[in-house]
């Protein structure tokens, strides 16, 4: 907590004298609707860097880091081991509070954007996020092993993404980032955090959010399954025996 407060203070101190820049961001859609043809979604985040006319221009170019975080989840990573003739889940490690979806986009390779300490502090890397949010830092080699596996599996499923060309400057002050949600991305609230840096120093940060929700038929089905399970079960059973009867009637051979 204290560390976080100090960090915040540091941020304010860094940003205060140079409050010359302000970020204005907007995401192309504040609600991603899941319909029956949903196969994932592509969103675009636009941003403008507004400069105070009085301030001097920066020596270096601007850098932008966009972090998109999905709803927090509880993740269990299990490792299979040999038990007699078969392979079964043995050791496991739990991660609480990791986002179910995480994308980190930057305008340049991260090592050129800022220092390692800041990258760790701002969670500008997938591995650092896993280490920080999931059961503390990798205390030993085994824990690191699980962290690596989680990163590998999540990346393979496209649920964790890191792209150092993900933010494109359209003009020196106008940028764009594409947010790509796979169909398996969790439902719920998403947060996009945009950080402006120059010469490795954070200048401004801005947040926006959007949500992924089921809509129409899909939403009603999911709601019915959760809120009226007896009715839902009954309807499913009636559909089953109804179709069974219909088939018998339609394909009758005698």
């Amino acid at each position: 907590m204290i560390r976080r407060a100090l960090l915040l203070l540091a941020l304010v101190l860094v940003a205060a004298p140079a409050s010359a820049e302000r970020l204005i961001i907007s995401v192309s859609s504040s609600r991603v609707l899941i319909t029956s043809s949903y196969t994932g979604a592509e969103l675009v985040l636009f941003g403008v860097i507004e400069r105070d006319g009085a301030s001097v221009s920066r020596a270096g170019p601007y850098d932008i880091v966009v972090t998109v975080r999905g709803p927090a989840t509880q993740i269990t990573v299990r490792e299979k081991a040999r038990l007699g003739p078969i392979w079964v889940n043995a050791a496991q490690r739990k991660y609480a509070g990791l986002p179910g979806y995480l994308a980190i986009h930057s305008s340049r390779p991260m090592d050129q954007v800022t220092s390692e300490q800041l990258r760790e502090r701002f969670l500008f890397s997938l591995a650092d996020t896993i280490a920080a949010k999931g059961g503390g830092p990798p205390v030993d080699a085994r824990a690191a092993h699980f962290n690596d596996a989680l990163l590998r599996l999540k990346t393979a499923a496209n649920l964790f993404q890191a792209n150092d060309k993900g933010v494109v400057f359209l003009s020196p002050n106008l940028f764009r980032a594409a947010i790509s949600l796979p169909a398996t991305a969790p439902l719920g609230n998403y947060e996009a955090i945009v950080t402006l840096l120059s010469d490795g120093a954070p200048l401004a940060t801005e947040k926006t959010d959007f949500e992924v929700v089921k809509t129409g038929f899909e939403a009603r089905v999911a709601l019915a399954a959760a809120m009226q399970p007896w009715l839902y079960g009954l309807v499913t059973v009636l559909i089953a025996i109804g179709f069974g009867w219909l088939a018998n009637y339609a394909f009758r051979r005698d």
Partner: peptide
């Protein structure tokens, strides 16, 4: 060897 299981909080 690894698998992940995810639950919403």
């Amino acid at each position: 060897l690894f698998s992940i299981e995810q639950q919403e909080i």
